Simulated scan of single mutants.
Amino acid sequence: MFLQKISLLMSLLSPLAWFIWFTYAVILPLCTFLGWLALPFVFFALVIADVFVIIQLLKVTYSEDDEYETFLTTREALKTIFPEASNKDIKKYDKQLDKVKDFEPVLIISPNHNWINQHTLQNYQMVMNAFAIDSLQQNNRRDGNSLLIFHFSTMTELYTVRQNVRTLHPNAYFNPVAQPKQEPIGAAWIFYKVGASKCDFGEDDNFFIC
């Protein structure tokens, strides 16, 4: 029973805490009482401690992987959002998303080339620039100059900017039942990071509906 309680206590300690406890509870007393004779025991104890720390770290790593195993990686999500993007571009976008904290909303807009053909690339970039700078101080941007990936602090901020851009650039939004048929400026994806390299994301079909 006593050994079971000790084992339970050890399992609750972090690897660093366990190593510190082991040092003060075992290694230092051995050195104090046995002097140089304790060196073989100390070496053996350190090996055991290192092995235990590695096991604990592996447990933490795999438990995090299991927690997020149903989510895609950021790179996989980007390939879904930008199926025609090159590996170089995907790597660049992935690097930009690395700076985002867990569960902070990111708006990713994949362009609609039909809209661009109708309204010109310059007008498209003007709208994307509005998403990048709206409600921010001068010279600040939320897109890392990508004109594709927009990082927000909250969902409230994201949809406030959406409303502001809609007011400034109504032609970027469309009426799905209008005749002749109207085109949205692009597809809007809401993206979150979860864990070290996983994410959750989905397309907001109503984002560009006026």
Rank of each mutant, 00 (worst) to 15 (best):
35 G>H: 13
35 G>E: 12
35 G>P: 14
37 L>N: 05
37 L>V: 06
38 A>Q: 09
39 L>I: 15
40 P>D: 02
40 P>Q: 01
43 F>Y: 02
44 F>C: 10
44 F>A: 14
44 F>V: 10
46 L>C: 10
47 V>P: 01
48 I>Y: 00
48 I>Q: 00
49 A>H: 01
49 A>R: 01
50 D>I: 15
50 D>W: 15
50 D>V: 15
50 D>F: 15
51 V>G: 03
52 F>W: 04
52 F>C: 02
53 V>Q: 07
53 V>T: 08
55 I>Q: 11
55 I>P: 05
56 Q>V: 00
56 Q>Y: 00
56 Q>N: 01
56 Q>K: 09
57 L>F: 13
57 L>I: 14
59 K>Y: 02
59 K>D: 01
59 K>V: 02
60 V>D: 07
61 T>C: 04
62 Y>G: 00
63 S>Y: 07
64 E>Y: 10
65 D>R: 11
66 D>T: 00
67 E>S: 06
69 E>G: 00
69 E>L: 04
69 E>Q: 06
69 E>I: 07
70 T>D: 04
71 F>D: 03
74 T>W: 05
74 T>K: 14
74 T>D: 06
75 R>V: 04
75 R>L: 03
75 R>T: 06
77 A>S: 15
78 L>I: 11
78 L>M: 15
78 L>F: 10
78 L>P: 15
78 L>Y: 15
79 K>W: 11
79 K>D: 02
79 K>L: 09
81 I>H: 14
81 I>S: 13
82 F>C: 13
82 F>L: 14
82 F>D: 14
82 F>E: 13
83 P>F: 04
83 P>W: 05
84 E>M: 03
85 A>V: 01
85 A>D: 13
85 A>E: 13
86 S>V: 12
87 N>V: 00
88 K>Y: 11
89 D>C: 03
90 I>Y: 05
91 K>I: 11
91 K>H: 07
92 K>R: 10
92 K>N: 08
92 K>F: 08
93 Y>E: 04
94 D>E: 05
95 K>I: 11
96 Q>D: 13
96 Q>Y: 15
96 Q>L: 15
96 Q>A: 13
97 L>A: 08
98 D>I: 01
98 D>H: 06
99 K>Y: 04
99 K>V: 01
100 V>E: 07
101 K>W: 06
101 K>D: 07
102 D>V: 07
103 F>A: 06
103 F>G: 01
103 F>E: 06
104 E>S: 07
105 P>Q: 04
105 P>W: 04
